[in-house]
Design a protein around this nucleic acid. Sequence first.
DNA 1: GAAATAGTGTCTCTCAGACAGTATCGA
DNA 2: TCGATACTGTCTGAGAGACACTATTTC
Lengths: 258, 258
Amino acid sequence: MATESTTQKKYRSPDGLPTDICLFTITTEPRRDTKNKALPDLTLKVLLIQRDPKSDRFPGYWAFPGGFSTEHETIDACAERELREETHLSPEAVHIEQLRTYYAPGRDPGGWIPTVVYYALVNESRLSGFKADDDAADARLFSVEEAMGMQLAFDHNLILQDALQRVQEKMLQTNIAKEFLPREFTLSELLKVIETVVPSFQADRSNFGKKLVSTQARKGIIEIATDAHGREKYSNSTSQTKAKLYRFTDYVPPLTIY
Amino acid sequence: MATESTTQKKYRSPDGLPTDICLFTITTEPRRDTKNKALPDLTLKVLLIQRDPKSDRFPGYWAFPGGFSTEHETIDACAERELREETHLSPEAVHIEQLRTYYAPGRDPGGWIPTVVYYALVNESRLSGFKADDDAADARLFSVEEAMGMQLAFDHNLILQDALQRVQEKMLQTNIAKEFLPREFTLSELLKVIETVVPSFQADRSNFGKKLVSTQARKGIIEIATDAHGREKYSNSTSQTKAKLYRFTDYVPPLTIY
DNA sequence: GAAATAGTGTCTCTCAGACAGTATCGA
DNA sequence: TCGATACTGTCTGAGAGACACTATTTC
């Protein structure tokens, strides 16, 4: 590239460089199999937008939100801008990270259009405004399971797979679970979130608590929530029994196979 | 994007979409502090190319190899092609993965030119041909330490930092150490490679062996190398004592903080 | 014999995972 | 009282990390 790039004009250029955003959230639904106070059912969902039925490319198909980047913004800023435009969410409320860039001949019949894909995680509660606004519109949350069974526009099925896999990895290896939880949460809520994103993750609830709170290697990932007077805080909103509240710290332990 | 992309023509397009490749290798040098047979000194190196002194952008600066992608290849294929062109390495001999895409206004004075960056890992022995070819040319291996102290072209200092961090993560969490080792290696060699890439990783050699070979969670990452008759293989090329040879399997244990 | 590495053995403290059992509170 | 969750306790086998020790080969 060192030399070629000075003579760039002889190269054709892409017809645009959009960002697409794979936004995940977890929705809660009261359990239907019991009338007692109980942990709600959680579902991992992904935001899709229905394309214009009059479009010449994938009309009426569902696709990730996104849009073209410009010369005057960083590629990250473009993704944040698109996210804001589609969901009215401020970037501080959302965890957004670049996944990777996709291009293969023919991925977009409209021409040479790669896409820089981001994944975003957001708490259901922050989406409430958006949902009210656009309830009848062309934007909807689908369960990931359902979305994977649909035929999405472009190569978005492949992208969804990759994004899900990345989120599952990150869920187990970092503290991004906090993006799906209130600032203070119970251990059962945390465990439910993890299991919702990574169904294969199974843990004994009582050992889970001990491990996370008192184990040498993990100590400090979460801490007990306290009020202004230093007293421990409790919640009984998701169970009949009051449960200790915890919050995440910034500490993430190093992981190694060696 | 769903609707906008049908009207793409009103958007300006990037002036090109190159890939850049951050290629790492580990070079070995016999130790100078001893005359006995001993483990060689290892250094993590990165391949840089000196830009044309007559270029109008960063003339004479050192930069990652790379080049413009075309409409008719996947973005991964472009990276592999560039790697091959610059190093005469076949893609099978190299581990190459996409890092991420960079763009910020002004990153390339030549216009709106984002870059899709890949990192690559290759065994020193595979590079020997390349080194003979281009010894006096504008391509050189620099120690990562040295490269980080240089002023590189474009935003390549930032990219190098990100790439190094990614490689360090992957070194500890996956079996990419195998890219820097012969197919069969001793435990001391493996440990040396890990320490070279991640200097903060320190392990007791004798516990390291036990852990990796016999521990439940790690069993199966490496296996004892055997010859055609099923006999264990030994090497004494890096020490006076003969040492058991091992090889990596495809197994990588799952990692989680929970 | 000294240097350099390979590999074994041992000891202690910690931990993972299984499971039993008690507590709390609402319907 | 039953249902659902919270939390504590106990037990066992496995593991991590420190360190001493022996073996092997070359200079």
